[in-house]
Amino acid sequence: MDKTNVKVAVVQAGSEIMDKQKGVNKTVRLLEEAGREGAKIVVFPEAFIPAYPRGMAFGAVVGSRSSEGRKDFLQYWKNSIAVPGPETAEIGEAAKKAGAYVVIGVIEKDSESTQGTLYCTALFFGPDGELLGKHRKLKPTGSERLIWGEGDGSTLPVFDTPYGKIGALICWENYMPLARAAMYEKGVQIYVMPTADHRDTWQATVRHVAAEGRCFVLSCNQYSTKADYPEDIASRDEFADLPDEMTRGGSCIVDPLGEYVAGPVFGKETIIYANLDLDKIAESHFDFDVAGHYARPDVFQLTVNEKKKTNVTWNK
């Protein structure tokens, strides 16, 4: 195995909205395709299963919620997944067949609370099909806070692989300087950024993170249209004034000096491939190492609480 080069795949595709089994099936098909192309790391977008519900209001305004919106949330909840669960087992089997590390965004049902909280989560699978772990989004943005809970410091993993250390922060978490600092201190080298942000400004963020962290960044977004949304959702009529292209993509791969290796690609579903020269990581640290010779721990320090948060502590 050549540990100085690795072929990676960034999947830019739309969700099978509100249908977790179709979403798993699509994930498996795309993993099979990436595996045939020889990709050893495969990345999927934020909330790929069952959806990033862009444009959906869930019947909510300040001070009230509608019964129709609760029905929409019920459908969203029913099509979110337990971790681990049958859906993760299927994805793990596909990762094993592809022989690839896989990072995929899902909406996770809290396994310890059978009725309620959902989390925007990135799952990590090994090439043996095992679920390595997960990262729950620490801070949902704007109206996302209506439908997703907040993760905590117990799910901030960085995983050792033959191709370097892999970790992920989701979408606007990457605007949180202290969250990035924690990832850099853990030595992340393949930095995965699943997102729902298709603006031009996101490209500046991706390139900045790569140059700041001296790491490869794999940024992955969906491509979706209004036609992808079921007709029976309560907020469907609110889509009339929205553009047909709901999410335009923008997925890309950036090297440790902030230069594009592949992409960005807009306006279509596709899989972006690139061969990464991993020696560039060490080369880039020659003049800047954010957690090493360019750090000033005598002036600045960050404390990270990695304990799982609970509402109740039992003293027995």
Score class of each variant (00 low, 15 high):
Lys226Leu: 13
Gly92His: 02
Phe288Leu: 02
Phe48Leu: 01
Asp228Met: 14
Glu150Ile: 05
Asp19Val: 10
Glu231Tyr: 01
Gln21Leu: 08
Glu93Ala: 14
Asp241Ala: 14
Lys40Met: 04
Gly267Trp: 05
Trp314Gly: 02
Tyr101Pro: 05
Val217Tyr: 00
Asp228Leu: 11
Ser15Thr: 09
Asp228Phe: 00
Ala47Arg: 13
Lys165Arg: 15
Arg36Phe: 02
Val24Phe: 01
Gly99Ser: 08
Pro45Glu: 10
Pro84Cys: 04
Glu16Met: 10
Gly99His: 06
Ser64Pro: 05
Phe216Arg: 04
Ser224Asn: 12
Met18Pro: 01
Thr201Asn: 01
Ser219Asp: 14
Ala94Tyr: 03
Thr117His: 02
Thr88Ser: 08
Lys268Glu: 15
Gly267Lys: 12
Ala282Phe: 00
Arg214Ser: 10
Pro162Ala: 06
Phe58Cys: 06
Ile166Asp: 02
Glu68Met: 12
Pro230Cys: 15
Thr313Gly: 06
Met1Trp: 00
Asn305Met: 10
Cys171Glu: 11
Gly133Trp: 05
Thr161Tyr: 02
Val10Cys: 01
Gly258Ser: 05
Ser251Lys: 07
Gly116Tyr: 00
Asp200Arg: 05
Met193Asn: 09
Ile170Met: 15
Asn315Gln: 12
Tyr191Trp: 02
Lys134Leu: 15
Asn305Cys: 09
Phe48Thr: 04
Ser111Ile: 14
Asp72Pro: 02
Met56Asp: 07
Glu269Lys: 11
Glu283Pro: 02
Gly126Thr: 14
Gly129Lys: 12
Ala57Lys: 07
Cys171Val: 14
Leu146Thr: 13
Ala100Val: 11
Arg70Trp: 00
Tyr119Thr: 09
Val24Arg: 03
Glu46Gly: 04
Pro194Asn: 07
Ala168Cys: 15
Lys22Trp: 00
Lys40Leu: 09
Pro157Glu: 11
Gly142Phe: 10
His208Tyr: 08
Gln21His: 01
Asp128Trp: 04
Tyr52Lys: 03
Ile253Gln: 08
Gly250Asp: 08
Gly267Cys: 11
Ser224Phe: 02
Gly153Thr: 11
Arg296His: 07
Val290Ala: 07
Lys268Gly: 08
Tyr163Ser: 02
Ala211Phe: 13
Thr247Gly: 07
Tyr76Asn: 05
Lys137Asp: 06
Ile272Arg: 06
Lys165Pro: 12
Tyr101Met: 04
Met193Gln: 03
Pro84Thr: 11
Gly263Thr: 13
Ala89Lys: 09
Lys308Thr: 15
Gly292His: 01
Gly263Tyr: 04
Lys26Glu: 15
Gly85Trp: 00
Gly249Ala: 06
Lys309Asp: 11
Gly92Leu: 05
Val261Arg: 09
Ser67Asn: 08
Val43Leu: 05
His135Asp: 09
Cys252Gln: 11
Ala295Leu: 03
Pro162Cys: 09
Arg145Val: 14
Gly92Phe: 01
Ala274Phe: 06
Pro297Lys: 09
Glu173Ala: 05
Trp172Phe: 11
Ala168Ile: 13
Leu118Asn: 04
Ser154Glu: 13
Lys3Pro: 00
Leu31Trp: 05
Val24Ile: 14
Ile91Ala: 02
Gly92Lys: 08
Ser235Phe: 04
Thr4Trp: 00
Thr225Leu: 11
